[in-house]
Simulated assay, not measured.
Amino acid sequence: MQDRLTGSRFFLVTILNVVITVFELVGGLLSGSLSLLSDAFHNLGDACSVVLSFVANRIGCRQQTASKTYGYRRIEILTALLNAGVLIVISLALVVEAIWRLLHPEPIKGDIMLVVAVVSFAANLVSTLLLNHGAQHNLNIRATYLHLMSDALASLGVILGAVLITIWQIGWVDPLITILVAIYISYESLPIVRQTFSILMEAAPKLDYDGIVRDLCQIPGVDGVHHLHAWLIDEHNLVFSVHVNMDDRRLSEIEPIYRQIEQVLSEKYGVCHVTIQAECHRGENEDLFYQQNDWH
């Protein structure tokens, strides 16, 4: 049911963005407004972004296979990185064009610009509201949501510019608004780029590692912890591996200790999958984090 709901919302948002793109392209050409034309290309990018996000969301729900033992969740991270990266590139291109317009001003028809901007803002607002809930729980959808929210903000800026141009004939406000919107888009996109790049590089998530060591060493039978690894499959699924020192025991005696370790890591630290290697004395004096010169 949730998948069908998400799919229908993605479809509606895509249709809205295609309509907005055509509407703003025509309006931008008729009015001579750079901010309208830039917003049109931005909306075209959003339509592509929505389609990519939907496809990635569907692929990410596939089950694990022999060749993809962790599943397909990373496809959503890749898509989020692509979407955010494209936004930054678009923003840079808009700034360059806006600076050119400031140096070489052109006449703008504020009345046409205003009508198109108001209609675009309404459509962008509807699109943003459709994806608002999913953006709170999914990095991929949040990247698309930011695309749409930045469009709504851009439309507000265009409306303001159209009013100023219509009443006071202040033509330079059009490229100025374009620059401000581009800066905002980049500001909102950079955290997504950093987070997705960090996940793809298998950077360790922010955890209380000293607390983890204390908690595990308080479990009866655990004498030490070393060679710890933690990484994210996506923004929700945290994977963990650790070596623990124990007395020489039978496997049937070790399994209950494993279950306690798994319970602590799951309930207190949000680990969804843990791999544990039991050792007697091997590595007991080694560092908590695996050093590269120890690899075999």
Rank of each mutant, 00 (worst) to 15 (best):
A143G: 08
Y258G: 10
H243G: 06
E202C: 10
V158L: 06
W231A: 07
L30H: 03
F41K: 04
D247T: 13
V244D: 02
A230W: 07
W172A: 08
L180I: 15
L52E: 03
L180S: 08
M1F: 07
D151A: 11
M201N: 11
S38G: 14
T128N: 01
H296D: 14
I167C: 05
V126K: 01
L265I: 12
S67K: 14
I59Q: 00
L216I: 11
R58I: 12
N57Q: 07
Q260W: 00
R101W: 10
S189D: 09
L12F: 13
P256R: 06
L94W: 03
R74D: 12
L16W: 06
L130S: 05
A93I: 09
W172M: 11
N43V: 04
S266E: 10
V116A: 14
V222A: 04
A117D: 05
L131N: 08
L25G: 11
L216W: 02
V116P: 02
L146E: 01
A182Q: 07
S38E: 02
L82W: 02
F23A: 09
L16S: 11
L190P: 01
I108M: 06
D248S: 14
P256C: 05
V96A: 12
E97N: 06
Y72R: 04
W172F: 15
F240Q: 06
V18T: 10
G85W: 00
L34K: 03
L94V: 14
E279K: 04
M1Y: 05
I177L: 09
S252M: 12
H226P: 09
L103P: 00
N132A: 15
Y70V: 00
V18H: 05
S127R: 01
D247G: 10
L130D: 05
H236F: 06
A56W: 01
A80F: 03
H133T: 13
S67M: 09
S266V: 03
L146R: 04
L34R: 00
Y184H: 13
A123Y: 03
R73G: 10
D46M: 08
L190Y: 14
G171D: 06
L200S: 08
R214E: 12
T166K: 02
I179W: 02
G270L: 03
N245P: 09
L16D: 02
C280Q: 05
S35Q: 03
A122S: 13
